[in-house]
Amino acid sequence: MTEQIASIVAEEQAPPAGRRNKTQLKRRSLLDRLGWFAFILPVVLGVLIFSFYPMVISLYYSFFKTYTGTTNMPSFYVNGFLNFGVFNYKKLFTLDSEVWIALRVTFTYAIVVVPLSLVLSFLVALLLNSQVKGIGVFRVIYYLPVIIPTTISGLLWADFFDARFGLANNILASLRLPESRFLTSAQTALPTFMAMQLWTLGASMILWLSALKNVPQSLIESAKLDGAGPLRRLWKIIVPMCTPILFYNLITGIIGALQLYGPVMTLMGQNGAGPDNALLFYAYKIYGTAFADWNMGYACALAWFLFVIIAALTALIFRTNKWVYYGDGE
């Protein structure tokens, strides 16, 4: 009896066939969406946990003046950070003269190396774009330095530019040219380092090469028929057609230059700042503040200042990107 009553109630409460189908569809659609979310969730979680969360927490930490490092606190608590305030930012702008040295070194490097690297890699790409037998071998040779690990190339260059026993001074001596102190003098350390960084221009070169391959031959042929010389064709057709890659290389080049750290560390070891702070790059300053001075709050403030600079520069470049050619109608 009870079962009968229950089945009648259930029948009465059950939605009509149309509604049932809709519910099923909704459920399927939800399952569909959940499935796709599941696919992207590992990446989203990764970004949230390993990029976004550290960024936000580092902004919070940047307002703590003192880092004691004590560990006997509960998990997820702000371990060892004391004295909330704006002291670190005051120190950054008014008290710490090294910050401005680091900015000067970093910006000098960026202003010289980024354009030079763009021009040289473009010229190399132009050469490697020619239809010569065995050109593939040259392409590999130019790209090879990019796949050599930074640590290995750092050690090689350190040996090459060793002021006392390095090959560089031997070459200069054999050419009867005056020897140089390279990385051991405040005057020559940064130029030497800049020259070394051009070693990896193969990375930009490969992008230029792909852009050059996409320049329509019909345009080149038309220009030729119209009597345009090689330089005119280069300036009026090839370069404008490659501006998206130029734009990309410019943005990544500036960001990379302002964040430069690894090559300095591998080349100079613990003495990463070089003679008289000649190689005190901003990122190295952040590292030293965090892991040599154990001043984590101040290191976070320094990192955020760099973030603001990079964001502002990137925004400026994006706002002035009218010179970039994205195709018809752009």
Binding site: D32, W36, A38
Partner: peptide
Amino acid sequence: LQKLAIILL
């Protein structure tokens, strides 16, 4: 694949 992804999640 969807089911596998959900299980994985």
